[in-house]
Amino acid sequence: MPKRDGAATLWDLSAGAPNERVEPDTIGIASSLEPQDVIHLVAECGMEHVVQRDGLAFEREVQLARMMVMEPAEFFSAPLDAIFGADAGTDHFIDFAVTCGPDEKKKHVLHQLEAYLKGLTGARSIREEAMMVADELYTNGAKNGAPIVGPVDASQVKPGWVRFIARADGMRLVLGCIDSYGALDAAVMVRRIQSCFKDGVAQSINQSQGGGAGIGSYMAFNAAMSMYVAVERGRRTIVLCALPLSKRLKETINLPKNFHVLTRD
C-alpha cells in the first residue's frame, strides 16, 4: 500500500503490485521479485523506482530513490556520488571521458576497464559481465553520435560526447555512460527489456543492419544488481549498472534486482 514520505510515495509491494499506473514519484519496496516482475512494475505500472530489501545496499538504494524523486538535479550533476553517498571513499575510482566516434574509442574504454578490473578486489567473478555491460552501455551512448556498424564518415558524426565512468566501494562496482545527447527514450528501453523476457531474446533482436541489436539493455540489466537510467531530454543521458563485488560468484548470483528511472524535459 502507498505511504507518503515527503515528496515521494513509498509502496510496500509485499501486499501486492498496484492494479493501475502509479504516480511517477512512487518508490516500490519489495523483497525477492524476479527480474521480469521488476520490469513489469516499471513498464506497466509506471513505477520509476523498485528497490528490494534482499538486494545489495538496500538502505542506500532507498535513499538514492528518494533523492532522484526530490532532488533530481543532484543526481544529474554527480550520479556516482548520489549512488555511493557523497562521503564514500574513492579509492577505486576511474572516470575518463571519450568523445563519440568510430570503434577504436570503444576499444580504448574496454581496455582501460579491463586494466581497472584486474586490480579491483572482488571483481574476478564478474569480469566477463562487467566488460559486457560496459560494451553495451558505451555502444548505446555512442550510437547517438555516430553509426556503430559499418564505415563512418565525418559527416555522420554529430557533435557531442560520451563519457564512461566507473567506481567501486568494496561491495559494488558501478559503471556506465553519460552522454550529451539526451536522446534515450527510457520507456522504449524498458519495453525492449520487457520484450526479451516475454518473447525471448532471439525474437527481440533488431535485424536492421545499421543499428544495434536492441537487446543490449536487457543483457546489461540481466548482469546487473541495479540499473539507473536518467534522461534530461536533449541534454544528457545517464545509464549505469551496479554489479556485486565478491570473491565467489555463488554468493551473489541470486540477489534480486533494483531499477531506477528519472526523466526530465
Binding site: N206, I215, M219
Partner: peptide, 13 residues
C-alpha cells in the same frame, strides 16, 4: 574472448 549484442545477432544470422 567475448561477445556483445550485435555479435549475438551476427552469430544467429
Amino acid at each position: 574472448k567475448s561477445i556483445n549484442s550485435v555479435g549475438i545477432r551476427e552469430w544467429l544470422n
